[in-house]
Design a protein around this nucleic acid. Structure first.
Lengths: 111, 111
DNA sequence: TGACGGTATGCTTATTCAGGAATATAGTCA
DNA sequence: TGACTATATTCCTGAATAAGCATACCGTCA
């Protein structure tokens, strides 16, 4: 057998992956996720916690839910959002570690 | 001691994290990273592997290097790029797993 | 039923940014 | 030096999208 080459990823797969990273590529949405670390919250609570405008928060929450990162649960007047996929926190932790390493390297270059 | 509340993340920290996710939120850049899984490549090789235009590839490579995901190494006429932070592949793997779980859930809803 | 609180949606504007084309820069070799 | 190759940069245009505002939707309660 010839040397194994890395399997080619289809453009569609790359775009799917990119689209999902794009959902995390916004500070407002990251703030919402962070505010949900301790459990379910409704929209008004999230507005208070994050300082976002209500309409804005609602739109971001919809995006996060559509992407599958959040659950929405309707209860009377309130809509409760919660984490549907905890791996989102692993992603953030990994990325934070990556940031730390980069800043460390940047520091080396200056010193 | 009062009930421990989740530590508040500063807007600047959220923006920093978001900016880093933004670098991964593009199919062309993900393709370049993927093409570098097997080791260093120069720009022309990456252009061939990905089908990107040279100027475009060069710009994306600069972004990836600025973010600290890639190294650049100059050798005569060639610029060799390589993975500086392998955790980028962990990030992609995690995200792919998250996609798979979401698609699984979507499937359930239809069935 | 009507009034109200909570949430979602449509419209508009401003900004960001990817891609293409042309060009500039830099290193090599005759 | 000048021609040539590899890579980077600049300018431009079009598309995506976040935020603000107004308003529509929906469930509750008097």
């Amino acid at each position: 057998m010839a040397r194994k080459k890395t399997k080619q990823l289809s453009p569609a797969a790359l775009e799917l992956l990119a689209a999902r990273f794009r959902v995390l590529a916004d500070a407002s949405r990251l703030g919402l996720l962070h505010a949900l670390m301790d459990g379910e919250r409704n929209v008004n609570q999230l507005v208070e916690l994050t300082g976002l405008a209500q309409a804005n928060a609602s739109k971001h929450l919809s995006q996060l839910a559509d992407a599958g990162f959040l659950n929405r649960r309707r209860d009377g007047l309130y809509t409760w959002y919660g984490i549907a996929d905890p791996s989102v926190f692993e992603l953030c932790d990994l990325m934070c570690g990556s940031i730390a390493r980069k800043l460390g390297r940047d520091l080396q270059e200056i010193a």
